[in-house]
């Protein structure tokens, strides 16, 4: 087992474990913390795939900003205890089964794809670096970039309007 393989399996297991804990923890605060673990594992994957800039952005935006926002809201609502009354166990089971079935079907659909043995190792490219991404972003994708700034503005206004006490 090479070092990449060991890293890959470690990060994968960590991500899946984190995801399962997000779904299953009773305490929302724990869920948030496990989600941060997932994000860290995914960032590791990004780095392994030479997407360094995305890895950093993922950590800063998701694990940093968004998760803090979640935590903030949860604490604001004082929901650190499990406030979820369990009424219908069957519906829960049905949801789990449906998710599992979807996974089965997707795996069955994708396991024979043409590209399944294409390796992702070796040959570090430089496309994941900020220089290359920035070049493309501010030339070919400048219009979507500007539009996304408008989106942010409108989201901000929307959040303020919604949060205003009326």
């Amino acid at each position: 087992m090479t070092i990449t393989a060991i890293l890959f399996w470690f990060l994968t297991v960590l991500a899946l474990l984190g995801a399962l804990m997000v779904v299953s923890s009773k305490n929302p605060v724990h869920s948030v913390l496990w989600l941060i673990v997932v994000f860290f594992a995914l960032s590791g994957h990004y780095i392994m795939m030479n997407a360094q800039f995305l890895a950093i952005v993922n950590l800063i935006v998701y694990a940093g900003a968004i998760m803090v926002l979640f935590l903030f809201v949860i604490m604001l609502m004082n929901m650190n205890a499990d406030s979820e009354p369990q009424k219908n166990q069957w519906l829960k089971l049905a949801g789990a089964i449906a998710g599992g079935a979807l996974m089965l079907v997707l795996v069955a659909a994708l396991k024979d794809t043409e590209t399944r043995y294409r390796s992702l190792e070796g040959a570090e490219g430089n496309i994941g670096l900020i220089e290359q991404l920035g070049k493309v972003l501010f030339t070919d994708y400048v219009l979507p970039f500007e539009i996304s700034s408008v989106l942010f503005l409108s989201a901000m206004v929307g959040a303020v309007v919604l949060g205003k006490k009326d």
Partner: peptide, 18 residues
């Protein structure tokens, strides 16, 4: 429950397709 139905239907469509 709506999402559940949606997922079940999606699964069914995948199965039919496969």
């Amino acid at each position: 429950s709506y999402i559940l139905i949606m997922v079940v239907a999606t699964v069914l469509f995948f199965i039919i397709q496969l």
